[in-house]
Design a protein around this nucleic acid. Structure first.
Lengths: 225, 225
DNA sequence: TCTTCGTCTCAGCGGGGTCTCAGGATGCAC
DNA sequence: GTGCATCCTGAGACCCCGCTGAGACGAAGA
């Protein structure tokens, strides 16, 4: 049972290392994201425990690059209690479980055992609509062979549309899922971001994937436009 | 056998919970629509029992959003005896069965068992009248293989006609359902919109799906015209 | 500090959707 | 056939919806 622990708070890392060793795990500890990524790619672990706030590369980035490099070792993320990102983001970015700091050591062990029992996850499916593809694991979007770079918000919006491709989704649904369930703003933001997306994934290719359904919402054409 | 019970009347909810537990169900109880929706999306149930009159989100809205989120757990709706909505509406909005309050506990159990036996339903059926089809989920209308684009009002009208296909519906019925229950205008709007619809779903195809029943109202031919 | 980038707000516009109105067409009763 | 009620439809006004450019703001990096 090999565990890679990526945690920059030295005392916390050391405590966890000792505890896990006592539980029979073999533990490698590194203190920044770059080392974490390197180790995860070079060695073989049964599970990786990954803090989010890290010097160098943050936890999300480490996880993303691991997946992009084809490393599918289960990842448990340690999220701060004040959710800058929420847990859905963690899971969405390729983590397999998460724990909010501060956490109980017993819970950590139980979760790790559960993850190891489940084994390495399969690679999440790439979403496709015609020649428009979105890979949640590597966070890449392509139109045919051309890669399209999106900001996080744009990516979240396209991800949502592609999960519901073929269906009409209202601006309210979008706001609640891509922004926040209690978002208090004008839903004009959605229009603005739909505009951004169109300029990146449709107009340069002369396509029309994102249709407006006036008075109702938007629909991503199942065929990609 | 996990059941989610969404019911704001605390005593009724408690009674049902006890009864279902005695019958061997595992029951989660929540008292408003928002919690109901959250639980239905996050956990896995075999069936959801959903009251219509709820604080927060009403039952219809909970059901609609569940389906919109891709959750197809069977839903049994509890409708009040004075039908603000009718049962057809309940079924149309994605519920799988309904029970009118007050109801017999034995009947409830029987219905739940039946629903669970049937398993999770597929997406709601596309409405069809001959070769005229309407898909509420994707909001698309087709005449044969040809897609017809409708405005929201036109779509609402056709949706209503198709739910009552074969029946004669009065202009007043239409106004109250497709426009607003307290609509104060001339019912000539209905005539105008029937005209629009005919020009989109009938005339280009040389068909006559929407018949005028002079002095009474309109009827959508069950065979699609 | 200055720049860059991502996010969001705001206001103006263009156009599509909704509805009203009036005159024409059609059906029904006698 | 005549007259009336009902229905149909073209024209047009109005208004709201959605799109977009400009810019404010904050965070992160040079």
């Amino acid at each position: 049972m090999r565990v890679l622990l990526v945690e920059d708070e030295v005392r916390l890392a050391e405590n966890v290392r000792r505890g896990l060793s006592a539980e029979g795990f073999v533990v490698d500890v590194v203190h920044d994201g770059t080392d974490g990524l390197f180790n995860a790619e070079v060695h073989t672990y049964d599970v990786v425990v990954l803090d989010i706030m890290l010097p160098g590369l943050n936890g999300y980035e480490v996880c993303r690059r691991m997946r992009a490099a084809g490393v599918w070792t289960p990842v448990l993320m340690l999220t701060a209690k004040d959710g800058d990102y929420d847990q859905a983001d963690a899971l969405d970015l390729g983590a397999d479980d998460y724990l909010t700091k501060p956490f109980s050591f017993l819970v950590l062990v139980a979760r790790l055992r559960a993850l190891i029992r489940r084994g390495a996850p399969v690679r999440p499916a790439v979403l496709a609509a015609g020649d428009l593809t979105l890979d949640p694991a590597t966070r890449t979007v392509r139109r045919g062979d051309d890669e399209v770079t999106l900001t996080p918000r744009e990516f979240g919006l396209l991800h949502f549309l592609m999960r519901h491709r073929g269906d009409v989704v209202s601006k309210t649904d979008i706001l609640e899922s891509v922004w926040d369930a209690h978002y208090e703003g004008d839903d004009n933001v959605v229009e603005v971001y739909v505009g951004y997306l169109r300029r990146k994934v449709d107009q340069p290719f002369g396509r029309r994937a994102i249709e407006t359904v006036r008075g109702v919402g938007y629909r991503l054409a199942a065929g990609g436009g």
